[in-house]
Design a protein around this nucleic acid. Structure first.
Length: 865
RNA sequence: GCGGGCGUGGCGAAACUGGUAGACGCAACGGACUUAAAAUUCGUAGGGCCGCAAGGCCCAUGGGGGUUCAAGUCCCCCCGCCCGCACCA
């Protein structure tokens, strides 16, 4: 009997309906099974689901379904990261309100996600742009404010001229806005910050415990970003024309206090108070500072500009060498942001100081002698020496190691009140103000008399006005005719609302908590977060290595400190998926073409592409990340409508390891589609042979035993590989088993029908996490009226996982010459005897005496001649 | 410059703590089925050499050294690619 072709699109709709009707994936809190919180980064509702989403949610769904079968009470929720600038841009371009645009996109994308057959508890869904979500975010903000974790200050900030808003440091990539790509300018503005630096040390140290559970590159990226360096503050007394008391000494930060005896100049930032003070009296200096400022409007330009200094005429007394003075320069490469905005220059042991000293004729005195070098002839005239060594030219430090010298200097300075040890960080506080409409309003009121006044709890949420206009640049909240005018909750006087909204990364910093109790009247509920947090496995894109993943770690600590959280680390394990890439196509005119507009013929070098509509040749370009601008996108809807969601899911998980980029190919998808049909066909044949489970016969023939071993070995291996997120290997093992099953289907043997039936059932359960619809369909064909989604993961029979007879390789002098099939528990002696008796071994030895035989039982034997 | 990751057939890849390199799949080639195609199915297959054949031998995990009975895996040097940080004092 030829089995019918499996109509995936039709059957998938059916099973999705069944799951929904039976509330199969509704997660209950009052369930005694152990919990498992599986989460993928929630999507921004940009319009339509793209292949990156399909990959992300497939990867998570395989894990969620597997863990469900393994007996866990799985929380696998979904929601919408719904605030953000694209909604406002749409409002400007298409005259549609951001809310309308956003909620329409959510409806579209939700339907698309549902067509993927994800095991999601949709009852916990929320959108961050909904007041029922952001009211709690405003509560969290006010508690952070009270705890000193949120504050407002004037600072030099990154201004994105395209977004018309400020950006956090993390959102500036290579001097450009992370979303707009516009060159970011520096502006002095009064803005809201979160005090992430309060947790710099904690955030750094906890990374050490992540090994094996978080990708290495994420941990190192975060370490680099936090940028901890241990050093020393040193005070230099200044001598100069009438310096005010405040400026009578200059404090610097250094990581090389051991090289103090090699100091030959001082340098301060153009923004340093001392520079600013001196500029008032020096036109030349003021001009120099102005010149620095002009270059320094962008980070990029700042980094490339030529190093320049201006000798102020002020001198600093060397704290370790009484009577010696050092000239103080204003230099364009000193950052006010880092350390104290001032340094001492030791040209002999620092590249930049070396360059500077040569340009401005300062002496270069070496103070660290490399191991084995001769003090009399050692020279740093051409380049500085940056390595370790022994101190010299340094009076009471002579002979010490670099480390010992650092300690001795630190103690010496401390005793005299001239400095102390200091840990410095690169990490800056998180700037969360945005001059945008479509974000969570910052719930404070500015009163002339009372200052910053929190909006009282009873007045929360501070809702966005619905009647904002988007027809001109700038902040629509600020433009609104009435919204910002209010009265002070404290004194009742006229007052003004804060018109900044929060960075949308705030929204995503705590959403995992909200899924635990999505309808609660408080931001979180202790019993619920104790039940579910932390997330056991988080899956998302690599681009959030520092952004979202650092913010969320900070937020967990802030929430704990303010009584809203229960853990320091929100994500026990993190997995970063690769991106989906595709070939690009261009017409001769240079215009990009969609894959669906192109026909491909031939193979390898003879591969040719033609534009279907015009018949003109097409240039096949590089394989790049799917993007609208390159038009190398494949719409998930088309794939699901044609092949079904299971095929898309199978293609996603086969072949490419989940953390690597995956090349989307039309051929590969068709191949996955054929595998889906093949499994369906094989199950039909199984059902034909054994419509019901068969009693196990007393005796099993060799074929039955072979099949059972293949099935149970695959079962065990597939489980392990799913747990380790090696889905591609799991799929390969399923195929291997499938090959065995298929080859035995037409044969007969003692107990083979029993084994075939068993294998068919195990196959269906094994593919369940990846191909949930097909598996459900096959489960019904096997005669069950239960749902596969409710079946426990079967237990592999331990006895079938080991073989009685095993084949081991036989090497002579390390080269494989033969193989040997022996009993599993054969002793080393038995194996040695058998190996030495092999004709192939005798021949390879060519008469040479055997010197040694190495036997690794169950693996290998090596005869050394 | 500092730090992290990676480099295996035509392609995607596999290989547990050093122990038969290339599982599994894609593409390819040959055969069967078919009026034909699709679908399906059986088979071949890292490169090279010897042999009618059975079979045997050599070379192969970016390159070069080393440790070891044994190296894709460990160590050193070099080349290339990807990522993070970078006038950071």
């Amino acid at each position: 009997m030829a089995s019918e072709r499996y109509n995936a699109p039709l059957r998938e709709k059916h099973w999705q309906k069944v799951w929904e009707e039976r509330q199969t994936f509704l997660t209950r809190d009052d369930d005694s099974r152990p919990k498992r919180y599986q989460l993928e980064m929630f999507p921004y509702p940009s319009g339509r689901v793209h292949m990156g989403h399909v990959r992300n949610y497939t990867l998570g769904d395989v894990m969620a379904r597997y863990m469900r079968a393994k007996g866990f009470n799985v929380l696998h929720p979904m929601g919408w990261d719904a605030f953000g600038l694209p909604a406002e841009n749409a409002a400007m371009e298409r005259k549609v309100h951001p809310a309308k645009w956003t909620y329409e996109n959510i409806a579209t994308m939700k339907a698309q996600l549902k067509s993927m057959g994800l095991s999601i508890d949709w009852s916990r869904e929320f959108a961050t742009c909904d007041p029922s979500y952001y009211v709690h975010q405003q509560r969290l903000f006010l508690d952070f404010l009270e705890a000193g974790l949120a504050y407002r200050r004037t600072a030099k900030v990154n201004w994105d001229p395209v977004e018309n808003s400020v950006l956090a440091n993390e959102q500036v990539i290579d001097g450009r806005g992370w979303r707009s790509g516009a060159v970011v300018e520096q502006r002095d503005l009064t803005q809201w910050f979160f005090r992430i630096t309060a947790y710099a040390d904690q955030l750094l140290e906890a990374l050490d415990g992540f090994a094996g559970r978080w990708p290495d590159f994420v941990c190192t990226s975060q370490r680099n970003w936090i940028g901890r360096s241990t050093g020393q503050l040193v005070s230099f007394a200044l001598k100069g024309p009438k310096l005010p008391k405040k400026l009578a000494s200059l404090e610097i930060f250094t990581t090389r206090p051991d090289t103090l005896f090699g100091a030959s100049f001082m340098a301060i930032s153009p923004e340093h108070p001392l520079a600013q003070h001196l500029a008032k009296k020096s036109v030349k200096l003021a001009a120099f500072i102005e010149e620095c400022r002009k270059i320094g409007t962008t980070e990029e330009a700042l980094a490339r500009a030529e190093k320049k200094g201006f000798d102020t005429g002020v001198v600093a007394e060397h704290p370790l060498k009484p009577g010696e003075t050092l000239p103080v320069f204003v230099a364009n490469f000193i950052l006010m942001d880092y350390g104290t905005g001032a340094i001492f220059g030791c040209p002999a042991h620092d590249q930049r100081d070396h360059d500077f000293a040569r340009k401005y004729g300062r002496p270069i005195v070496p103070v660290v002698l490399p191991p084995g070098a001769d003090a009399a002839s050692f020279s740093v005239a051409d380049e500085p020496y940056l390595g370790d060594g022994t101190l010299f030219n340094s009076q009471w430090l002579d002979g010490l190691s670099v480390e010992a010298a650092k300690d001795k200097v630190a103690d010496w300075l401390k005793e005299r009140g001239l400095g102390e040890r200091k840990v410095n960080y690169r990490l800056r506080d998180w700037l969360i103000s945005r001059q945008r409409y479509w974000g969570c309003p910052i719930p404070v009121i500015h009163c002339e008399a009372c200052g910053i006044v929190p909006v009282p709890q009873k007045d929360l949420p501070v809702k966005l006005p619905e009647d904002a206009t988007f027809d001109r640049p700038g902040n629509p909240l600020d433009h609104h005719p009435t919204w910002k005018f209010t009265t002070c909750p404290k004194c009742g006087a006229d007052a003004r609302r804060e018109t900044d909204t929060m960075d949308t990364f705030v929204d995503s910093s705590w959403y995992p908590y909200r899924y635990c109790a999505p309808d609660a009247p408080t931001p979180t509920v202790k019993a619920a977060i104790d039940r579910w947090m932390p997330v056991d496995q988080y899956i998302g894109g690599k681009e959030h290595a520092v952004l979202h993943l650092l913010y969320a770690r900070f937020f967990a600590r802030g929430m704990k400190a303010t009584g809203h959280g229960n853990v320091d680390e929100p994500f026990t394990a993190m997995f970063t998926q690769g991106i989906v890439v595709h070939e690009t196509f261009r017409a001769e005119s240079g215009e990009w073409l969609m894959p669906s507009e192109v026909r491909i013929e031939g193979e390898g070098a003879a591969r040719k592409a033609t534009h279907i509509a015009s018949g003109k040749p097409v240039v096949i370009g590089a394989i790049e990340k799917m993007s609208k601008s390159r038009k190398n996108v494949v719409d998930p809807d088309d794939i699901i409508a044609h092949f079904g969601a299971d095929t898309a899911r199978l293609f996603i998980v086969s072949d490419s390891p989940p953390d690597r980029d995956i090349i989307w190919t039309e051929g590969g998808v068709a191949g996955a589609g054929r595998q889906v049909q093949r499994i369906s066909r094989i199950i039909d044949e199984v059902v034909e042979k054994a419509p019901k489970p068969l009693a196990r016969p007393g005796e099993l023939g060799p074929e039955a035993n072979e099949l059972r071993k293949a099935a149970h070995k695959a079962l065990a291996a597939v489980g392990q590989n799913i747990e380790g997120l090696r889905y591609n290997v799991a799929v390969a093992q399923i195929y291997e088993f499938l090959n065995t099953l298929q080859s035995l289907l037409g044969k007969s043997g003692q107990g083979l029908d029993f084994a075939i039936r068993e294998a068919g059932e195990l196959l269906v359960q094994m593919v369940g996490p990846m191909l949930p619809h097909l598996a459900e369909d096959c489960w019904a064909r096997l005669g069950y009226n239960t749902l596969l989604a409710d079946q426990p993961w079967p237990q592999a029979e331990a006895a079938l996982l080991v073989d009685d007879q095993i084949t081991i390789a036989v090497q002579v002098n390390g080269k494989r010459r033969d193989e040997l099939t022996v009993a599993r528990d054969a002793t080393a002696g038995e194996i040695e005897t058998a190996a030495l008796g092999l004709e192939s071994v005798v021949r390879a030895l060519a008469g040479k005496p055997v010197k040694k035989v190495i036997v690794v039982p169950q693996r290998i034997v090596n005869v050394v001649g």
